[in-house]
Simulated scan of single mutants.
Amino acid sequence: MVNVAQLQQEIREFAASIGIDKIGFTTAAPFVKLKDRLKQQQELNYQSGFEEPDVEKRTKPFLLLEGAESIISIAVAYPSKMADSPRGKKGERRGMFCRASWGEDYHTVLRDKLAQLELFILTKVPDARLRSMVDTGELVDRAVAERAGIGWSAKNCSIITPEFGSYVYLGEMITNLPFAPDRAMEDQCLDCTLCLDACPTGALIQPGQLNAQRCIAFLTQTKQPVPEEFRQKIGNRLYGCDTCQTVCPKNKGMNHTHQPAFTPEPERVKPLLLSLLSLSNRQFKEQYGHMSGSWRGKNPIQRNALIALAHFKDESAIPELGRLVREDARPMIRGTAVWALGRIGTEPAEEILQKVSQIEQDEAVIAEINKAMKQLSSNQKKEV
């Protein structure tokens, strides 16, 4: 007969020994209130589309593991500051990967820790049934973490821990073992609304509700052209967005660097924008494939680099933008490069647009050319 209380303590100790920063336990009972929120998100079209579409699976752990009794939630901290951060300058502008893409892909790191935890449990209880997941699984990591006492669910939809702020990665394991549940934390955001006020696109509709379709973190990952209303707001972000975390008072002074896997490589997480535009698929995978921000491939990153060059109005990029609009096979890249040329707005940029307007065949790109030319013409009239 297994002494569950003793095993639970042993799991806590083992988790700490393998670099799991926080661990909590909760029941495998259905997430009833969450189910209603998820259905509302679907009805409002606030979902990103990356989630598991079946709300039942997202809220009923017993559908994912027969005999589910409890869930173990884990959190691993990551840094918020970078030593020797490279600085961009005129002619050498840089983009930025969000903190959640610093170092090694957190999916890999947390899955490895959960695999070690599974093996430890199975050495104690060989017939235990276990199922682990990180981010891409059916369960909502934040909901599990909240109920397991890892932290509280903040207004920006992050889990905030007292020890590490919101700079933590989350994962969980469903088990058929009846562990005693930990207590959930009380909300400590109180009347603060800094994250809602600072969101560049107004994606935080209200406390705890995010319209992912407007969230820059989502927009930088899409494989389609970024809607024009959001392009200038993206700035020089290549992947993700940290604004709602960096303004949070609970994150002030939080910078935990004890996880070597997440130590950022400065030239990877703040790369020169122009250097990104000529990377082949193989080169991109070699340089960025170990980072979580590479999961959608090079196309979204290169599109975002074009938006960033437009943000800086980088005239040194005009020759490369001209090459892309003439030679690149991808309409999204050609269209975004056209928009960037229109934003930079110099005479050489206009000349390129005039020439390419005679040869472009794609309707969406032609529409971008027409808008860019119209904007340039309007700007010239204002100057006169």
Rank of each mutant, 00 (worst) to 15 (best):
Gln6Trp: 03
Gln8Lys: 08
Gly19Asp: 05
Lys22Gly: 00
Thr27Val: 06
Gln42Phe: 03
Lys57Phe: 02
Arg58Leu: 03
Phe62Tyr: 12
Leu63Val: 04
Ile74Asn: 09
Ala75Ser: 11
Pro79Val: 04
Lys81Met: 14
Ser85Asn: 13
Gly91Asp: 08
Glu92Cys: 09
Met96Ser: 14
Met96Thr: 13
His107Leu: 02
His107Met: 00
Leu110Asp: 03
Met133Pro: 00
Asp135Leu: 01
Gly137Pro: 06
Arg147Ala: 05
Gly149Tyr: 00
Ile150Val: 11
Gly151Arg: 06
Lys155Thr: 04
Cys157Met: 10
Ser158Tyr: 13
Ser166Val: 00
Gly171Arg: 05
Thr175Asp: 04
Met185Tyr: 07
Glu186Ser: 11
Asp187Val: 09
Gln188Val: 00
Cys189Asn: 10
Cys189Glu: 06
Thr193Cys: 08
Cys195His: 09
Cys195Val: 10
Cys195Ile: 08
Pro200Tyr: 05
Ala203Glu: 03
Leu210Ser: 02
Phe218Arg: 13
Leu219Phe: 03
Val226Ala: 05
Arg231Val: 01
Arg231Lys: 14
Gln232Leu: 13
Asn236Lys: 11
Thr246Met: 12
Cys248Ser: 09
Gly253Thr: 10
Val269Arg: 07
Leu274Cys: 09
Glu286His: 12
Gln287Val: 01
Gly293His: 05
Ser294Leu: 00
Leu306Gln: 07
Asp314Thr: 07
Glu315His: 05
Ala317Glu: 08
Gly322Ser: 14
Arg323Leu: 03
Glu327His: 12
Thr336Trp: 04
Trp339Thr: 12
Leu341Gly: 09
Gly342Phe: 01
Pro348Thr: 08
Ile366Phe: 03
Lys374Asn: 12
